[in-house]
Computed example of a mutant assay.
Amino acid sequence: MDRHEIIVVTGGLGFIGKHFIRYCLEKGHFVKNIDRISYAADRVVNAEFSKSSNYRFYEADICTLDFLPECDIFVNFAAESHVDNAITNARKFCETNFLGVQNCLELVRLKHEREQPIFIQISTDEVYGDIREGSHKEEDQLIPSNPYAATKAAADMLVKSWGRTYGVRWNIIRPTNNYGVHQYPEKLIPKSAWRMKRGLPAAMHGDGSYIRSWLHVEDAVRGIATVIDKGKRNQIYNIGSTEERRNIDVIRRIAQIAGIEERSAFVSASDRSGQDIRYSLDDTKVRALGWFQQKKFDEEIIQIVEQLDNSRFV
């Protein structure tokens, strides 16, 4: 994105989307944000962005969107993403994560070829399923373990097929577990910190031995921008992290920062159905483009816990 681009972002009031929009506006790009304002939308950040003359907001659902504004790049962040919700009721995940992507692909396809934007699909490491040793590469088989991951894997297949059948230019980007400030408090770090600060124990699935690779959202955004700038079209790129942690160790660190005794910091709940043991991505391809991880988990989590503010979601 060396020149000033017109970028359509879907789901731009969500966690990664809003950080990507801020990055783009700071770089001088023109951003058109399409968001249906779900329960997890950050309304405060929308007011912040609206102060920029380079920002436009459209309240719409990608499932029913019937018009694609002029743009050079289309970046789809819009998704239902909370695994627990998907296990309870998967229908909305199928609608948004699969049919919504199909609708967006059609809107791009129907543009005149000189006006067709590049379609950037933000996927997830969960499409691969878990891996006990080593790391998943982009060409590995997709073996999703839960309904959320299955809908994201299905969407990836749609993107690839629209590229082959209709000539839509695309990239699929699969980041690992994101964290950072102003994340909706259904995810592990903000939810655990919020409960502890209210004098309640955090809930932990099983014995907390499940391992996740933690990628700071600002590193993820730079990775996405790197792929847009320098990546080869019609390719998949993983964005991984060297910061592996067991869930129980993350919760213990939050308790330490919050000044909570470990024995009262959390309680064990039953294992999540279809629980993945470990995620890990081989991100050699994106590193070859010049991207590298900058943020350190042990440093960033202090700021996240100390500056926790969920009022923007209430």
Rank of each mutant, 00 (worst) to 15 (best):
A40K: 14
T88H: 13
F67R: 09
D35M: 02
R91F: 09
D84A: 09
H82I: 07
D61E: 06
N54D: 13
D35F: 06
F30K: 10
L65F: 10
D42T: 00
A40N: 10
F77Y: 15
S81K: 14
K32R: 14
R56E: 09
I37E: 06
F74E: 06
D72A: 11
I87C: 09
R36W: 12
A47C: 11
V45T: 10
F77M: 06
D61S: 12
S53V: 02
D66E: 09
G28Y: 01
C94N: 09
R56F: 04
L65Y: 12
S53R: 06
K27E: 03
V45Q: 01
A41W: 09
A41E: 08
E70Q: 14
I73V: 15
D42F: 13
N46I: 03
A79T: 15
E95A: 13
F30R: 07
F57I: 04
N89Y: 05
H82L: 11
H82E: 13
F67D: 11
Y39V: 12
N46L: 15
T96I: 15
N85M: 15
E95I: 07
C71H: 03
S53K: 11
S38Y: 04
N33E: 09
D84N: 13
I34W: 05
F74A: 02
C63M: 09
T64Q: 11
F93C: 00
Y58A: 04
C94G: 13
K27N: 05
N89H: 10
D72H: 08
V45L: 01
E59C: 09
N54T: 03
D35V: 00
F93Q: 07
I34N: 08
N33Q: 07
D84G: 07
N76D: 14
F93L: 08
A60S: 10
T64L: 04
H29V: 01
D72M: 04
D42E: 15
F30L: 03
E59R: 10
K32C: 12
Y58I: 15
